[in-house]
Amino acid sequence: MDAVSPKSLSVRIWRGKDDGRFETYEVPARDNQTVLDVVTEVQRRHEPALAYRFACRVGVCGSCAMTVNGVPRWTCRTHVAKVAEAGEITIEPLRNMPRIKDLACDMAGFFDKWQKAGGRFTGTRNRAEPPAAVDPASRKRVAVDAAIECINCAVCYSACDVVSWNEEYLGPAALNRAWTLVNDERHALRRTTLDLAMEQGGCGNCHTQGSCMRHCPVGISPTESIAGLKRMSLLSFLVRDHAAADALAKTEEPA
């Protein structure tokens, strides 16, 4: 059982769509309470119609991100004690995506951009063939050790100022995904992914300012992934028709 402390928390939550308003709710302050716990408590006790998203509650699914006191965060892994200011928290939907209702926003555009950045995996083997043996110590695999941990939460996308002023920009998460694919020796279309990530709306727009890296809850640096894509694109041009370009363009032969 949660220990109910005498103190309470004042929670301002965005209600409605773009022309909505903040409503304030009083919720008991509890030990080890997360922001998602607070939202759930408001929905159960005060506002049954409150719309918000979550699934795993343990930082795996990436569905619970919201703006908490002005900062994009995964709410299921954010302790109230860490973010409350004088017993108050303000919770809004993420930035840079159309609002649907209350704390839920429409992520379709965000995921469409993953496709635009060449984020769809295309395999080189069929199911009858043995799976590729990727050496965990290989240079390409090590280069994406962090990047592949992305949980698709859109916190970085919400944190990125370039996304907010250029709606074409594919954003940190989609480009981070592209970076994992251009380094994936099982991916057949590495050259295509690299070119798509460098096209209109792609890597060239990044200001390398690092808001994405600063806010990513799992510690990924999309900034670094984008820099990697730029480097790879430049290199593949300089050593055109040589080994690097070949390695990128060709599909892997089964080992």
């Binding site: 792609g202 694109s233 041009f237």
Partner: peptide, 13 residues
Amino acid sequence: MSERGLFLAQRLS
């Protein structure tokens, strides 16, 4: 010129 072409031209210059 494509965005990628411009990016390359800028870096090489």
